[in-house]
Design a protein around this nucleic acid. Structure first.
Lengths: 346, 346
DNA sequence: ATGAAAGCGCTAACAT
DNA sequence: ATGTTAGCGCTTTCAT
């Protein structure tokens, strides 16, 4: 019971070593360090000194194993691209709400690669995070079916679960696209170029759907000729816009389906002698400065809702049915969409 | 040895249950599921079926505990603000390089709050991530002293370790600020407004230092009268710029010490009849479009270097001394800095 | 090709 | 106020 703990250098010291060095049992050392109470002040101090001296750091893995998954304070967020301000603002809203509830957010990026999403969810699930928020890029989610029943709570954001009933926070993509389309159609535009993201994504398809409703109701046929898809990054979007503008007849207006694509369009339109009208889905950094009309919404609010649904699953009734929250969009008219159609074609 | 495993619903099934259901021992089940080999094809299949049926998911916490910390594939990145494109690009470079080496990146944000940084590092360290990359907002790092010796490897980015020898990847802040200052001074500016971030941050102080060197050499006195600090967000920066422009005499040029502050300045200068020259540290989204001159550098490269240093610590000699890498900056002249000083004052 | 036993580091449960 | 025992779920060793 003296200070000579078995020195298996250079591994990290364990609680046992701390206990040995301070001449108490493991449990007492544990109590002293975790502040559980019922430890004499003197003992407590001796244990702390021993811990400091050895450079002891508790092993959270062992603790979690013993205490069960409920001990973890980590919540994971998995998304396609954390560099996108939409997701980073979502993450920010989520994090703040989690933090006041004693939870910590960790985020991971899949770069819209389903295989990486699968690996990341597996890793985080296996390491027993407390909960998971997913902006999924996968086509289906059968592999998560077991989780909700006897596992880790999760919430889908931005994109809904497929083949699975689960909580989700979504945007009114259809409604937003309708607002944009109506705005352009009412200004007299008949040839509207639409530039979209990866065509497999739910958000993309829904936005196209909303747009189609409006233009078809307005009697505009052949709109799909001016639809370009899979422009996932700024450069591709820029090229797509140039291509559209080079056509005869050229579109008199542009609807870009997310913030990156809008950025590409802004670039492509730079210095253009008679640019088409432009409206984009998602707010843009410096959007007011640039004078770009947008369909705006509140990514932080989406994050806060995701946190709320997760907290309800963690601390509320376990048997609640899955809930879906749909957040509204708002049309923000700035200069770029006020350019009238400038010819008689169409 | 029949299928009646102890049903302690509603917890998750363990390997034992899978083993029981398939009529083999735990070890055999483990072998079958982890692909370790030496399992009969038939057995393997039976085990997999049982696992699927129960919705089994291996417990990574238990696995890590048994295997030791080297089993983890998670590397953490802790930074002050992941929504800032500088950090998200850094994260992207880091992630790609880690991924090809079989490691996964998780990120966490401290919002420049030292207490939260402390909590997050503790949590990740205790849960035994494989390595840690930190853009630290703390004043000192004694608490990490033990880690490098018998613990988890870490690398500092953007801001150096204080009171501790550790690997780091830094920017040539001083040199970059000198480039900016020289550029403005050579154009004849004598009254240069400088708007800085949190004054306690290393990067901030270093940039001020580089600027001071140049202007003092040029015989400009009283430059500090035009220095405004602690403009940590866009709105504060915008206000700071307005304040500077309202002075008599007003500065003829502005040097903004990071991307957020530059954004604020761009806003403040909007519609100004005779705006001062402007140059900012860090590239800006749409910076070319906006015509803002900047001191640019490569955040992805910083991420890749951080990955390299971490990988060297993980797989190379453990006893290497700490290494510091300093990345260069480049002056990118666009319209905003070409505006000449417009009066005789100074 | 399979199994039994031990133990990773910690804490819950039950002493004392 | 402190100690003992057992066990979280897995994998390592060593048998067979």
């Amino acid at each position: 019971m003296t200070a000579d703990a078995p020195l298996k250098q250079p591994g990290r010291p364990s609680l046992i070593q701390v206990a040995a060095l301070s001449g108490v049992s493991a449990k007492t050392a544990s109590r002293a360090l975790s502040g559980e109470g019922y430890v004499a002040a003197k003992t407590r101090q001796r244990v702390h000194e021993a811990a400091d001296q050895l450079g002891y750091r508790p092993n959270g893995v062992a603790r979690d194993l013993r205490r069960g998954a409920k001990a973890s304070t980590l919540v994971g967020l998995i998304s396609g691209d954390l560099a996108n301000p939409f997701y980073s603002r979502l993450a920010s809203g989520l994090e703040r709400k989690l933090r006041v509830n004693g939870l910590q957010l960790i985020t991971a990026s899949t770069e819209e690669n389903p295989e990486w999403e699968r690996q990341l969810t597996d890793t985080l699930l296996e390491r027993r995070v407390r909960g998971l928020v997913i902006a999924s890029t996968m086509a289906g989610h059968d592999h998560l079916a077991g989780e909700r029943i006897h596992g880790i709570p999760f919430v889908f954001v931005d994109r809904p679960p497929v083949g699975l009933s689960a909580d989700a926070v979504l945007l009114d993509n259809r409604g937003g696209a309708r607002q944009a389309a109506r705005h352009l159609v009412e200004a007299g535009h008949r040839r509207i170029g639409v530039i979209g993201d990866l065509s497999r994504l739910f958000t993309h398809r829904d936005r196209i759907g909303g747009f189609a409703e409006v233009v078809e109701t307005a009697g505009i046929t052949g709109w799909a000729d001016y639809l370009l898809e899979d422009a996932h990054d700024v450069a591709t979007a820029e090229r797509a816009v140039r291509e559209l503008l080079g056509r005869t007849p050229a579109p008199t207006a542009l609807f870009t389906l997310n913030n990156r694509i809008t950025t590409g369009a802004v670039r492509a339109l730079r210095g253009h002698p008679s640019p088409p009208a432009l409206i984009g889905f998602d707010e843009l950094d410096l959007g007011d400065f640039l004078g770009v009309s947008v369909i705006t919404h509140d990514p932080e609010e989406m994050g806060r809702w995701a946190a709320q649904l997760l907290l309800d699953q963690l601390f509320g009734d376990a048997d609640e049915p899955a809930r879906h929250v749909v957040l509204p969009t708002r049309l923000l008219v700035r200069d770029s969409s006020e350019r009238p159609p400038r010819d008689l074609g169409g």
